[in-house]
């Protein structure tokens, strides 16, 4: 028996919105500690990892660990029948569920849907706990804007960290550009820029993955970029009181 109730159903909709362009079919894992999801994009360049802790739910029960294979596209069709202010409850009765039930509650209506589940034998990657040598925390809308703007100039974006801060740069056929974001310790947390640089990094990534994933900036005013030289970078959006949504992205290397 599994039941998880989102106080703020809009949050769940934003999460699905952020990952729908990156992953097609995912295994939603539920157990006593909460809900998690890990899935790679078709080209195995990016990996989406969601972690939602049971304490963040209005109601949460999961007697036995469950794996529910679902199509993100079909999940979206069901979620489109809910309002952004609805409370959303996920529920299933059986131990080997073939459907996942959804209840959307608002003050003037209640809706029930069932999504057919699928069995997905997806390869799970072991993501090692890494000590990253550069960790940058910055406003998520700033990061989104920089990726969108520089992404217009070149499909690969460079990220260079130093004690002074973080620099994004592009070198394309039409020309080149760079954006250096200054560290600031303003008392407004959503505008703060912090850099912990033990070792500077200089990495290159396909910016389209950033632009697809940055819909997640609706989840949090801050984004955390964790990097080590020649390692996948992690973009993390903290989901207040619930957990986090992460994107791991493999770098492009100078061949």
């Amino acid at each position: 028996m599994f039941e998880a109730k989102f106080e703020d159903g809009g949050l769940f909709k934003k999460i699905v919105e952020a990952i729908k362009e990156l992953v097609k079919n995912v295994n939603l894992e539920a157990n006593g500690t909460g809900i998690s999801l890990q899935a790679m994009d078709t080209s195995h360049v990016a990996l989406v990892a969601l972690q939602l802790n049971e304490k963040g739910f209005k109601k949460y029960r999961c007697e036995k660990s469950l794996t529910m294979g679902l199509s993100i596209e079909n999940l979206q069709k069901i979620l489109k029948c809910s309002g952004n202010d609805d409370q959303i409850t996920l529920r299933t009765q059986d131990e080997e569920p073939t459907t996942l039930s959804f209840t959307f509650e608002s003050k003037n209506r209640i809706s029930e849907f069932q999504l057919n589940l699928m069995s997905l034998d997806q390869e799970q990657l072991g993501v090692p706990d890494t000590e990253y040598s550069s960790v940058v925390r910055m406003p998520s809308n700033e990061f989104t804007k920089i990726c969108r703007e520089l992404g217009n100039i070149n499909e690969a974006i460079g990220i260079e960290t130093s004690k002074e801060g973080i620099k994004f740069y592009v070198k394309g056929d039409i020309g080149e550009g760079q954006v250096s974001v200054k560290i600031n310790d303003t008392e407004k947390p959503e505008e703060r820029v912090e850099c912990e640089v033990d070792e500077p990094v200089n990495l290159s990534f396909a910016v389209r993955y950033f632009n697809l994933f940055n819909k997640a900036s609706a989840l949090s005013s801050q984004v955390i970029l964790s990097m080590s030289q020649d390692q996948p970078l992690v973009i993390e959006y903290i989901i207040e009181e619930m957990g986090s949504l992460k994107l791991y992205l493999a770098p492009k290397i100078n061949d």
Binding site: E123, L125, G126, S204, A250, P251, I253
Partner: peptide, 14 residues
């Protein structure tokens, strides 16, 4: 040019 790597090169199969 820059060659795109994939995650299997960094993360092990679980």
């Amino acid at each position: 040019g820059y060659m795109q790597t994939i995650l299997q090169g960094y993360f092990s199969q679980a």
